[in-house]
Amino acid sequence: MTDLILHNICKAYGEKTVLRDFSHTFPAGKRTCIMGPSGCGKTTLLRIILGLETQDRGTMTGRPERVSAVFQENRLFEDFSALSNLAAVCHHGDKQIMEAHLTELGLGDSLHKPVRTLSGGMKRRVAIARAVLAPGELMILDEPFTGLDQDTKKIVLDYLKHHTQGRTLLVVTHDPAERDALADEVLDMSPVPEGG
């Protein structure tokens, strides 16, 4: 496993430049929290790393072949159960492991319920479990704690810390408490003031 190195990445949508000569090294096997105000290019950066967008200029090296993600939206298969959603991405297909993960996240009673019937917070936890169980050395989490109450957030934080050891994690968050609980490294993408 190698570091993920981005060098002089530029991305613009029409006249609007979102990333200008962005360079950063994400250390392999570490959790990096990405912070910054809305519109500073966090999501665009993640989309470039995921391969969903192509940078206008710059290079990226060290990206593993397989990645997993929690998107800003849950993006679950709504008609299928929580367990089926995990089975969709979990190639080893060990049902007991999947059940254990969902139970650990407090979803033990909802394993077989269609995802569309679950609450927003429950769906979020299914999306997180899916990303954890999906194969991939790199995990990208875009505001993964959205819609979770404080108690559930703590459970999810512990779950992530326990099950993502050794994987490279990039987590977008606005909450310093989440950052403190999770991050090995912090990347602040706040724009530097003019003349600063």
């Binding site: 995921l50 391969g51 969903l52 397989r66 990645v67 997993s68 993600a69 998107f71 993006r75 298969f77 709504e78 008609d79 299928f80 089926s84 969709a88 991405v89 899916r130 999906a134």
Partner: peptide, 22 residues
């Protein structure tokens, strides 16, 4: 959802089952 199945590299059969048939 297309992006999601692309990222998670769902094989062809699973894409049909989970995405296209529903």
């Amino acid at each position: 959802m297309l992006e999601a199945v692309q990222i998670f590299r769902l094989p062809w059969a699973k894409r049909v089952l989970y995405l296209w048939l529903p």
